[in-house]
Structures are given as structure tokens and as C-alpha cells.
């Protein structure tokens, strides 16, 4: 028996990981806690027994084909955000972020200590998939506006680049939603083809030059109070791995969450300071009446989506219950402290 164990331990694995983000993207592809960093960590921890080759979007398959490719087993792993799969599994978006949902601390608590991760695995099981958090950008910004937004009325007729669920909420308030690939956001915003654009946060947005196209930077992260990077793994492949390698993957993924989050927090702080002090950016939260109106619409939208889809309802209920519990704790612990 000991010989047999050793044989299995020394068996090595060569996997492919695809990514929904293009080559060179900081955070999403390279940098501390990024998917390429994760691959290096796993290789080092396993002494080369688990070798994951990383391919950015377009290198092996197009950006959003990772779900299908991992499910079919053509690649073993994929790095992305779960809300990209909302067209396949509507409930998946809860595992990236929820508008007016929990912040990063709450989200992590729900995923790791609440039912979050369990529900995520349950949801993906029928597709032959398993997923883990592998990174976090922290809170994202409302976005860049060419003109100040002072009342709900100002949203009516506004042309904005904003994908996903938040786009639906905005459109209820009269915003005209424009879907644009990353490369066209800048010229469109600069020339006024669109009046506003959401992207990520100060560090990533500055890299795209968005501050040269619009000066009003609204900072209320209502639509993405946190943002979880998803490590997607083919379930059959996962089950075939020895326990120690499984554990290394999980630990490397958790380390990546911490590292990428702290990297984002540090870089965003520097970038926002630079934008405000050197680039004439006016950074401010959205006016309160707008935020409350957005919240009303979001609450209705989420509730009606949950009622239409039993899978979503189950995740929604768990998420909302946890959020309520976490919020009352945070209201007494964190909140008073933040105002100091």
C-alpha cells in the first residue's frame, strides 16, 4: 500500500486555464493574486506536480467561451466572473456581486462561512462544474459622467455604457444603455456618443484614460459593492485530483483573493488621489435621492427575477437573509468607526 500511495502522489497533471480577460490586463491576468499568479503558486506548492498553462482571452478561445469549454472538458479551468454566465444560469450572477448587496467582507462571510459556496457548487453540479473565489477587485465605481448628475431627472435620456443587471435598473429610470467593447469606451465617451461609462475602479479606469474623456467621477459603488473573480473547474477533473492537490488549489485560490483584494485597495487609493489632485477629476458620491431611487428599482427587479426562477429564488433567499444579519452587525461595529 505505501508504494501505491507514493505512485499516486508523484503522478503529475498538465492543465489549461483560459481567461475571460485580454492578455496583459492587470489584476485580471497578471499581478499579485491574478490568475497567472495563481498558476505559479500552484506549480510551486505542488513541486511541479500540477502544471497549469494560462491562456488569456483570444489566445485559445474567445473571451466568454470559458463556461462551455470547461463544461465540455476541452480545457480544465477558466478564470472569469460568474455573472458572465447569466445567459446560461441566471442565478450565477449572485456569486460575483449584487447591486446594493453585501460589501466584500459580507460577501466573503456568506461564501466561506454561510451557504454561499455550497449553493454555488449545487448550482454548477448539473453542468459538470465546480467553482471557487479566486480574486476580488473590491468595490467598483458608479462611473464617469460628462455632466454632473444632480437629480433622478438627469438620468432620463442619458446614454451610458453599462452592462448587466445594473443596466436594466438604469434603463427603468430612462437611461439608454449602450453595450460597447472595452476599446471603444474611450472614443465614444470622449466624443459624446455616450454621456457616461462604467468600467472598474480608479486604477483600471485611469489605465483606459477615461478621465480625459469625462471629469465627473461618481464613486458610490451601488451596482458592484464587491466583485468576485471565479475559478471554474471541470468537476470530473476536480474529482480525479488527489486530496493534497485539491487542497493546494483551494488554498492558492484563497491566497489570491486576499492578495488581489489588497493589491486593488492599495492601487485604487493611489490612483484616485492622483486623478483628483493631478487630473482635475471631480470625485464624489451620487446624491442621496438618486441612490434611494436606484435602490427601490433594484429591490423590485431582484425580487421579480427571483420569483421567476426557482434556482435564483433559493440563492436570493440565502443571500438576503445573510445580508440582513451581516448588516445589523456591521451597522453597530464598522459603520460608526468609518465615520471617524
Amino acid at each position: 500500500a505505501p508504494a501505491l500511495v507514493r505512485a499516486q502522489e508523484s503522478k503529475s497533471f498538465n492543465f489549461k486555464m483560459t481567461n475571460a480577460y485580454p492578455p496583459g490586463s492587470p489584476f485580471y491576468v497578471q499581478g499579485p493574486g491574478s490568475p497567472t499568479d495563481f498558476c505559479n503558486k500552484v506549480k510551486a506548492m505542488s513541486g511541479g506536480r500540477l502544471n497549469i498553462s494560462h491562456f488569456a482571452a483570444g489566445e485559445l478561445i474567445p473571451a466568454l467561451e470559458g463556461f462551455n469549454a470547461v463544461a465540455q472538458g476541452t480545457v480544465e479551468m477558466n478564470a472569469a466572473n460568474a455573472y458572465f454566465w447569466a445567459g446560461n444560469i441566471p442565478a450565477a450572477q449572485f456569486f460575483t456581486t449584487v447591486p446594493f448587496g453585501m460589501n466584500t467582507q459580507g460577501m466573503m462571510a456568506w461564501l466561506y462561512q454561510g451557504d454561499g459556496l455550497k449553493l454555488w457548487h449545487e448550482l454548477y453540479e448539473p453542468h459538470g462544474l465546480i467553482a471557487f473565489p479566486m480574486g476580488n477587485t473590491g468595490v467598483q465605481m458608479t462611473g464617469w459622467f460628462r455632466e454632473p448628475i444632480e437629480s433622478v431627472k438627469d438620468l432620463d435620456g442619458l446614454k451610458m455604457r453599462i452592462p448587466g443587471l445594473a443596466g436594466k435598473v438604469y434603463s427603468e429610470l430612462g437611461v439608454s444603455v449602450r453595450l460597447l467593447p472595452g476599446g471603444e469606451i474611450f472614443p465614444a465617451l470622449e466624443r459624446g456618443v455616450i454621456d457616461a461609462a462604467e468600467f472598474v475602479g480608479p486604477f483600471q479606469d485611469r489605465r483606459l484614460g477615461l478621465h480625459n474623456a469625462a471629469k465627473y467621477y461618481y464613486t458610490t459603488g451601488w451596482h458592484e459593492p464587491t466583485n468576485v473573480t471565479e475559478l471554474l473547474i471541470n468537476k470530473e477533473v476536480w474529482d480525479s485530483l488527489p486530496k493534497d492537490l485539491q487542497m493546494m488549489i483551494q488554498m492558492a485560490a484563497q491566497a489570491s483573493v486576499l492578495e488581489s483584494l489588497s493589491w486593488s485597495e492599495a492601487n485604487n487609493a493611489d490612483a484616485l488621489k492622483d486623478l483628483v489632485e493631478n487630473e482635475g477629476v471631480i470625485a464624489q458620491p451620487l446624491p442621496e435621492p438618486i441612490v434611494s431611487r436606484l435602490k427601490e428599482v433594484t429591490d423590485d427587479t431582484l425580487a421579480s427575477m427571483a420569483n421567476a426562477d426557482p434556482q435564483m429564488k433559493k440563492v436570493y433567499d440565502s443571500y438576503m437573509t445573510f445580508k440582513k444579519k451581516h448588516a445589523s452587525w456591521a451597522a453597530l461595529s464598522e459603520k460608526p468607526l468609518l465615520n471617524l
Binding site: 483570444g58 485559445l60 478561445i61 474567445p62 473571451a63 467561451e65 469549454a69 476541452t74 467593447p181 476599446g183
Partner: peptide, 16 residues
């Protein structure tokens, strides 16, 4: 070649 269809799909749905 199992990756092929996804790549072809990427070409014919490329916004640019």
C-alpha cells in the same frame, strides 16, 4: 480541435 467551434464563433460574432 475541440476548441475550434468556439474560435469560429468568436470570429463571426466579433463586434469590430
Amino acid at each position: 480541435f475541440s476548441l475550434m467551434p468556439a474560435r469560429l464563433y468568436g470570429v463571426v460574432t466579433n463586434y469590430t
